[in-house]
Computed example of a mutant assay.
Amino acid sequence: MTSPRVVAVLLAGGTGTRVGHETPKQLLEVAGRPVIAHALGAFDRCDAVDEIVVMMAAGHVEDVERIVEEYGFAKVSRVLPGGATRTDSTRRALDAVHEDCLVLFHDAARPFVTERIIVECVEALRGGYRAVTTAIDSADTVVTVEGGRMTGSLRRASLARCQTPQGFACATLVEAYRRADADPEFTATDDASVVSRYLPDEPIGIVAGDPRNFKITDAIDLRIAEVLADES
């Protein structure tokens, strides 16, 4: 029996507002290369990945196509316009890939994803999970707050911070979103939470993340990324 193809989807719909730029943060340079080029390179080099699809912010599709050509990312098959929200971009990506594949969703603003993480996500899916997420332990105590006051704290040992990639048997994520469509109160910030909420009996595997696999969000993150790039 032929193993299903692995398609990596890079979600690049974010803007550069919080990092102080009008240019989308995925196109800003770190160590002389666009942020998205760092992330694309990791997936393009990984033998566990067969194909890459990029969901780019509207109006900047051609910018990414030029980057793909310049750096010779041979596995990139399509650069498509993303939606207004992250979940909209996910839906568009699901429409663009074959339902029999395994799909990895990764934030393009996480430039330092490692081959180890990518491979372990794929291995977890091939090993029986139909949904996995990358996560790292919470180093901080998380408290509940109401009215400007601390009302309690959560048990740190049972908490983790999600990263990407998150991986799925494509049909599983399609079904989760189909059920979400019937919920007028549906909101989500990541895809694993959609599976968790709408397919509660579906176990979600955990792949150990890496502190370096952080998401560039604020201006200070760009400075941290420069330091990490110089050390690698």
Rank of each mutant, 00 (worst) to 15 (best):
K75D: 09
M150W: 06
A57C: 05
L228A: 00
V53S: 07
A12F: 02
E115Y: 01
V103M: 09
D181C: 11
M55R: 12
G167Q: 14
P4E: 10
A58R: 08
T114W: 06
M1D: 03
R86T: 14
I67G: 03
S89P: 12
A42Y: 06
G14M: 00
G152T: 14
L10E: 05
R33S: 06
F43Q: 00
E123L: 07
P165K: 14
V68H: 12
A58C: 00
A188V: 11
G14R: 08
E99K: 15
E69I: 02
I117A: 01
I118M: 11
E175V: 08
R110T: 13
T23E: 15
L125N: 03
K25F: 04
T85F: 12
E175Y: 13
V103P: 00
D47I: 04
L80F: 11
T23S: 14
Y198S: 02
S196M: 08
E175M: 15
T141H: 03
P184T: 04
R33Q: 10
E62F: 13
I117R: 00
A108D: 10
V142R: 08
R116S: 09
R212A: 08
L125D: 08
D191W: 03
A93I: 14
S158R: 15
P165C: 11
G128P: 06
E231I: 04
G13W: 11
D140F: 01
R91G: 10
D181K: 09
S3A: 15
Y129C: 00
V68A: 11
V68M: 04
I220R: 14
V19I: 15
A57Y: 13
E123K: 11
G127H: 04
V79M: 07
I36T: 01
G148W: 06
A160Y: 04
D140P: 01
Y71N: 05
A188Y: 07
I136V: 11
V68W: 12
I220P: 04
C162A: 15
E51S: 03
V122P: 00
V6W: 01
K75R: 01
C101T: 10
A48C: 03
R126Q: 05
V64P: 13
D190K: 13
T134C: 12
R18L: 13
M56G: 02
A74R: 15
D100P: 05
D63M: 01
L102F: 05
E99V: 14
M55P: 03
E29D: 03
I36H: 11
D221H: 08
